[in-house]
């Protein structure tokens, strides 16, 4: 996942922030030539990324720079646009010193995505918990749907099998900032333990009496059930929000002919 974001905490308070989005012909020297051009023209690169993985013949180079006020950026951009390796150029000023993205709309796992602060997401969960009846069930259902959808997306890109599905999930967790995932899973009897360190949900709570990551349990249940083509239940037994060092979710096959009331009674 590419983060085309730059949080503007300007080093030089008097400077202006200028962004460039360059589509270039992919040669071994292209990136170096472009970077050199910036240095030669006094454009101080603060944040940048490049990506030539989608189409080997072309690359995308996005950079955010700080430049002194009143510098003639247009002339520099014109020169940049005329470089042999540059196929297309967009550029602009960021006036508001807030957040700037030059990629719109964002995409994640094949779908339109937005970026949301953990605090905002957890606020939504809290409002659901406080106001919706059977909120744990509701959050499980939401997570379930997301988890199932992720596997379906992965299947379009890679062969998802019993050996790699949890590794894929681990990478996804890290890349999306949800936490770090460790697991022990027996794919034959469908049992296992998923340990999440720094869960983005649990991190927002302190001193809770009950586990808080029902959404994540639902996500795991959907992800594993879809991957293994069998129905599993996932329950969070240890949660960081309750003072533990990490969160732990237990995976087991869904019991047949057992009702929730009986589960609660320990039958």
């Amino acid at each position: 996942m590419v983060r085309d974001l730059y949080m503007f905490s300007k080093i030089d308070k008097e400077a202006e922030v200028v962004w460039f989005k360059i589509t270039y012909e992919n040669t071994v020297r292209s990136e170096a030539d472009i970077t050199s051009f910036f240095a030669e023209n006094g454009l101080d690169i603060r944040f940048a990324y490049l990506d030539s993985s989608e189409d080997p013949s072309k690359g995308k180079y996005v950079m955010f720079t700080e430049v002194e006020k009143n510098k003639d950026i247009k002339s520099i951009a014109d020169k940049l646009g005329k470089m042999d390796v540059v196929l297309n150029l967009d550029w602009g000023f960021s006036k508001n010193r807030a957040i700037q993205t030059v990629e719109f709309p964002l995409h994640l796992l094949g779908e339109r995505a937005i970026i949301i602060r953990v605090k905002t997401f957890v606020n939504i969960l809290n409002i659901i918990n406080e106001n919706a009846p059977q909120s744990e069930g509701l959050l499980t259902m939401i997570g379930l749907k997301s988890g199932t959808g992720v596997v379906q997306y992965f299947r379009d890109m890679v062969d998802v099998n019993d050996n790699n599905f949890l590794d894929l999930l681990k990478e996804l967790f890290m890349a999306s900032g949800w936490g770090t995932l460790d697991y022990e899973m027996n794919t034959v009897d469908k049992t296992g333990t998923l340990r999440v360190t720094d869960s983005f949900i649990a991190d927002e709570y302190e001193g809770s009496d009950v586990p808080k990551c029902a959404y994540m349990s639902g996500f795991f249940a959907g992800y594993i059930s879809e991957s293994l083509d069998t129905t599993v239940q996932v329950r969070e037994t240890i949660c960081k929000s309750m003072g533990n060092a990490f969160c732990e979710h237990q995976v087991s096959p869904a019991p047949k002919d057992v009702k929730i009331e009986h589960l609660h009674k320990g039958e």
């Binding site: 059977q134 069930g137 499980t140 259902m141 379930l144 639902g218 239940q233 002919d257 929730i260 589960l263």
Partner: peptide
């Protein structure tokens, strides 16, 4: 259960494999 953590009993999900459990 329409809205519970034992989601596999939910009739809506149960329909997805084309077979109903008969609870």
């Amino acid at each position: 259960k329409a809205m519970d953590t034992i989601w596999w009993t939910n009739a809506k999900y149960d329909m997805e494999d084309g077979e109903l459990q008969g609870n």
